[in-house]
Design a binder for these strands. Structure first.
Length: 519
RNA sequence: GGGGCGGUAGCUCAGUUGGUCAGAGCAGAGGACUCAUAAUCCUUGGGUCGUGGGUUCAAGCCCCACCCGCCCUACCA
């Protein structure tokens, strides 16, 4: 793409709370978002991909105190470990934002001022049963007075005390109808539909105003005009999506180009904040709303929820070490319908690696390339007239780009990959049916045609799986003789292999996962 | 309590507006082939489609009840 008229595409992950170390759930979200970002780049879009860490709040402060360091030091250290995870996962983010970044402080204060100027921010008292441990208020009905005379939050078994605190409020209640109207007008604003419905139901029941500042700690963005208050999580955190584009400079080229965001990828635990608070804030601030909030599910280890107490929290780096980066990227996106909860297990991962990657794709590439090397002088063979069988598999492969594009548009990664692998299954059957190893002795021109057709299918597949497996697909395109650059973006999808061009020594791309030998 | 979703072959799941809808992949069994990463291809699935009723000429697909599982029901992120 040499055009300077590329359509912008802005995608974000949620920013992580770096109160601890990153786990597989964090990895899952950035991998999926990365695949989306890469797909769009290959498809000719001018992509901006933002991810980062949300570093303010009482918990960060407390953790830092416990460790005897400043919250800034803790944030720096843990944010670095998140960024490192991104790099280990090959995440192609354009900016790693931190809510402690100076430009983000500016952005958060500016959106506050805008909401205030719009009459949606007012000072009042926030009162309720407060759990220090949960850093959360509970309503009376969610607490109970127990025999020890202490009142507890029913859900979390933590003691609560009646607390009144001066707080700024956001007039969320005023946005109920506007939000519902937007949901009606933009039925794809939230996805998957089941999650979006939960959000809509929530709004339909009525919205209360939102407490948006705290006075009990100071590790946060100062509220403009009142140094006693710091912003309370959501105004601060959500605004990172604006900061990334250059806000508050709404005249900047990047803001004009990338805002509003096309997709916010988030976990199901924070759907409400992204699908309700966030658009309300933006409406109040007079800013455009993002196109879509894509809500993904959680990953369970063998169907069991990950938790520190169970000791089944796996570091992303361990996964990468054990199975390889591309394998786990493929596994997560192929195995779990994006939006649903998913489960991973050693057996399931190995199954995907061996069956899908090594056998169906890797072996097809290797067997065809190997024959080309031995029988076609390591050059892309010249095909003869295509038979119906040739044409059928070529057409199936050619049809994949629009199909995959459609699925990616909705972040249905598993369906996209399923469609690709269906064609690979057909291609393997085609290859076996045509028996080029027999044709070698009986009909060489026909053999060359079959090999050409197969290589062409593999080439198209290799192009399409680049967003999911950047490294492996790159090596696959290497052995197909496809140079970096124009031949590897989607505009090359319909530009077939050039007969007579030299091919490098074929090399297996997807080794089988072999169980380490027992001693 | 209220609301939502799901319960289909050993496993993971597809099944549009009711009428080849009883399916796919994986695992298992048998066979073929040898180009290839012990890979590939072919054949092989009689599962009361959670339970019991009902509507209909016809129901996984509609209605009712029930059983089981999961999710949401506001200020930790």
């Amino acid at each position: 793409m040499t055009s300077t008229e590329q359509t912008p595409f802005y995608i974000t992950t949620a920013i992580s709370y770096p109160n601890g170390v990153p786990h597989i759930g964090h990895a899952y979200e950035v991998i999926a978002t990365d695949a989306m970002a890469r797909f769009k780049r290959l498809d000719g879009f001018d992509v901006f991909f933002l991810t980062g860490t949300d570093e303010h709040g009482q918990k960060m402060l407390q953790t830092a105190q416990k460790q005897g360091i400043s919250p800034r030091e803790l944030a720096q250290r843990n944010s670095d470990s998140f960024q490192q995870m991104n790099d280990e996962l090959g995440i192609s983010y354009d900016r790693f934002i931190r809510t402690t970044d100076p430009d983000h402080i500016d952005a958060a204060q500016e959106i506050w001022r805008r909401m205030e100027a719009n009459g949606d921010v007012y000072l009042d008292k926030y009162a309720g049963w407060y759990s220090v441990r949960d850093e959360a208020y509970y309503s009376e009905e969610d607490t109970e007075l127990r025999e020890d005379g202490v009142r507890y939050a029913t859900e979390t078994d933590t003691p609560v005390t009646w607390t009144e605190e001066e707080s700024y409020f956001f007039r969320l209640s005023a946005y109920q109808d506007k939000l519902l109207e937007h949901y009606r007008n933009a039925p794809d604003f939230g996805a998957p539909r089941s999650r979006f419905n939960e959000v809509i139901r929530f709004v339909e029941r009525g919205l209360e105003d939102l407490s948006i500042s705290r006075t009990t700690f100071d590790w946060g963005v100062p509220v403009p005009g009142n140094a006693d208050h710091v912003m309370y999580v959501w105004v601060d955190a959500l605004t990172n999506y604006l900061t990334g584009t250059g806000f508050p400079d709404t005249t900047s080229a990047s803001f004009k180009k990338y805002w509003p965001a096309d997709v916010h990828v988030i976990g199901k635990d924070i759907s409400r904040f992204h699908a309700i608070y966030w658009p309300a804030f933006l409406m109040s601030a007079g800013l455009e709303l993002p196109g879509r909030v894509m809500i993904h599910g959680f990953l369970h280890n063998n169907g069991v929820k990950m938790s520190k107490s169970l000791g089944n929290v796996i570091a992303p780096a361990e996964f990468v070490d054990q199975y390889g980066l591309d394998s786990i990227r493929y596994f997560f996106l192929r195995e779990v319908p994006f939006g649903a909860d998913g489960s991973y297990s050693h057996d399931a991962i190995v199954g995907r690696m061996n069956a899908d990657l090594s056998n169906n794709l890797g072996n097809l590439a290797q067997r065809s390339l190997s024959m080309v090397k031995k029988n076609c002088d390591s050059q892309v063979p010249a095909p003869g007239e295509f038979t119906a069988a040739d044409q059928q598999i070529l057409d199936a492969a050619a049809a994949l780009l629009p199909i995959v594009r459609d699925h990616f548009e909705r972040q249905e990664f598993s369906r996209a990959l399923e469609a690709v692998w269906n064609v690979l299954g057909d291609a393997n059957a085609y290859f076996a049916d045509q028996q080029p190893w027999v044709l070698r002795k009986t009909d060489e021109p026909r053999m060359r045609t079959v090999l050409y057709v197969t290589l062409e299918v593999v080439r198209r597949v290799a192009l399409l799986v680049q967003p999911v497996m950047p490294d492996a697909s790159s090596r696959l395109l290497d052995v197909l003789g496809q140079a970096d650059g124009a031949a590897r973006v989607f505009t090359a999808f319909d530009e077939p292999l050039e007969s007579g061009s030299d091919l490098p020594e074929p090399a297996p791309i997807f080794p089988r996962y072999e169980v380490p030998a027992e001693v």
